[in-house]
Amino acid sequence: MLNTMDDNKYFKDERDKIIKGLEETYRKLIEFKKQKKTPIVVSKNGEIVEINPNEIQPTTSYWRKII
């Protein structure tokens, strides 16, 4: 059985891997949309919105304060 410190480290490591994967997926999506010259379609405030991939950042970084 893991103790609390080991549990916290394990979950932090797993969370960091997931976030890194999501950031890489976002980067690849923007790159793909730029190559195909197609808009990114998202929902914003309940409305469908098309965004030109050249108008957004090709990378993102997610940092969350752990409480």
Rank of each mutant, 00 (worst) to 15 (best):
N8E: 02
L29C: 00
I66V: 13
S61N: 09
I56V: 10
L22G: 07
K36P: 01
K9F: 03
G46Y: 04
Y26P: 01
K37Q: 07
D6M: 14
K17E: 03
E31M: 12
E31D: 10
E14Y: 13
K34F: 14
K9G: 00
T60V: 15
I19L: 08
E24M: 07
R64L: 08
E24W: 02
R27V: 02
N45W: 12
I30R: 14
K36T: 05
R27T: 07
I40V: 06
N45S: 07
R15Q: 05
I56W: 04
I66C: 02
I19C: 02
N52Q: 05
E24Q: 07
T4E: 07
G46H: 07
T38P: 04
N8V: 08
E23V: 10
P53E: 11
I30Y: 09
E55S: 15
K37T: 04
T25W: 14
D13P: 10
E55P: 04
R64W: 04
N54Y: 07
Y62R: 10
K28A: 10
P58T: 14
K28L: 11
N45Q: 15
K17R: 06
Y62E: 01
K20P: 00
I67S: 15
Y62M: 10
N52H: 02
V49A: 01
M5D: 12
K36G: 01
N52M: 02
M1K: 13
I51K: 04
K44M: 13
K33C: 12
N54W: 11
V41S: 02
I48W: 00
Q57E: 13
L2W: 11
F11P: 00
P53C: 10
R64Y: 13
P53Q: 14
D7N: 05
I67H: 14
K12Q: 11
M5I: 14
F11E: 00
K17H: 01
I40K: 06
N3F: 09
Y26V: 03
I56M: 04
T38Y: 14
L22A: 10
K37C: 08
K12W: 08
N3G: 09
I18L: 05
K20S: 05
Q35T: 10
I66L: 14
G46L: 10
T4L: 12
G21Q: 04
R15D: 00
E50T: 12
T59F: 11
E50W: 09
V49G: 06
E50I: 14
L2A: 02
L29V: 06
D6A: 15
Y26L: 03
F11H: 00
I51E: 05
S43T: 15
I66M: 12
S43C: 14
I66G: 01
T59P: 03
N8D: 05
K17N: 00
